[in-house]
Design a protein around this nucleic acid. Sequence first.
DNA 1: GCCCCCGTCCCACTGAGTGGAATCATCACC
DNA 2: GGTGATGATTCCACTCAGTGGGACGGGGGC
Lengths: 252, 252
Amino acid sequence: MPGSSSNDAIGVLDRMTSILEAFDADDRGLGISELAVRAGIPKSTVSRLVATLVRQSYLERDGSRIHLGLRLFELGQLAELPRELRAAALPVMAELRHSTGENVHVAIRDRREVVCIAVMRGRSAERPFVRTGGRLPIHATALGKAVLAHASPRDVDDVVAAGLERWTDRTIVDPAVLRRQLEDVSRGGLAAEVGEFAAGLSCAAIAVLSPSGELVGAVSVSGDSGAFDTHRFEPAIRAAALALSRRLRPSP
Amino acid sequence: MPGSSSNDAIGVLDRMTSILEAFDADDRGLGISELAVRAGIPKSTVSRLVATLVRQSYLERDGSRIHLGLRLFELGQLAELPRELRAAALPVMAELRHSTGENVHVAIRDRREVVCIAVMRGRSAERPFVRTGGRLPIHATALGKAVLAHASPRDVDDVVAAGLERWTDRTIVDPAVLRRQLEDVSRGGLAAEVGEFAAGLSCAAIAVLSPSGELVGAVSVSGDSGAFDTHRFEPAIRAAALALSRRLRPSP
DNA sequence: GCCCCCGTCCCACTGAGTGGAATCATCACC
DNA sequence: GGTGATGATTCCACTCAGTGGGACGGGGGC
């Protein structure tokens, strides 16, 4: 919602990332001019950079419409963390979906956000609120709070220092409240979220640890706040997190 | 196999792509030095560029091991072409796998290669020879020949001009033979491959066209050359290609 | 026809990027 | 603990890649 384009974008690389990240989820391709506006870079420069990226298949163009290219898909599939976790998670998620009937997600932390690396739609559930590859704020989602509770105090400080952006009127924006919840979670509690990210949406999550005890990500179940008791599914989610943990390669 | 590192890599962007593409399928992370060797770029430069890419989450580092980062996964999921085709293809592929029992693939063309955007392992089949996101040579695979047969003559010329690299002793390296096969396919024939890419591996493919008749990709079935009759599954593959075509959004 | 918007190209300027060498860190083996 | 190998980071003077305002061409719509 803020969309504040804080564009330092000094180096060419930062420029490139600005361009790549200008693409939305549902775009049907962008023109050079719009791209230039979104990325906050002069048109002529964008034109030149895009030409290079197209040459490398990082972008594609169909006439004057520009799209994200195949090489990004390819590299994305190569990334180890999501790949391994996904492979391990899919069967576990299927089981969790079966036992709860709700939408199921697995996400990984990336700085002050989490990235959803797998989503499964529950049998009788609404379409999931996030797509595979989607980013979510770490402080306003159950997935985020589950992983943040296992992070270092310094990490929590960073998140707080960056400001707790408000998404709904129930979003936790008070650092003290957030810290209290995180402490509770880190003592073995369930990470829950009721309308804090999107109105009417509830979610419950548990962190996933590697066999050696390191934080890997989190698994969650979400549903409509009306009929969703955050604690009802706790045993199932906990079991899923544990099962997933056991399926992970033991040696990272 | 050839791994010839033809590294012009003048601009920073090209440098970056060299770095990103230095990552293999099964790597457990690369160090700066190895990365520098693979990318053909001085160490100090790689160090600097990697720092920037890490800052942007395009790469990750765990001590001195460097991995592909989450942002690549994220952007890869955003790329429209694979995303839409995948969504449309998965049910069709499931059906094709069910009716054939073999491994099933869907791929998109990218210049002189095809990129596999979905793979399903057949019930009784060996593990697939290519992963999602994997690249295959266009002239040495059924998938490649299926799409190439629908491309412009100029495109075929380009492929031929670039040289038909030999993968096995059955790979087609004679342009005349390739052209003859492509003509046959474009007249409605089945694109087939018997051990041309990997010894003992057979594959049969059909192009997938959009509702408006444009080439989108190809769908294929593959199996062990011993027990695999390239033509036995032709009706099933053809039906899948048609079904997939009908599921595609009509307005690209 | 005219105007408006969009993408590309041009070109003189300059500071971002470069990379060899020095430095620091870690590890292994004697 | 010394010594040498390996690997990552930092420094810094040089210079060429990248820049971007503006001109150009073209296409689409009123």
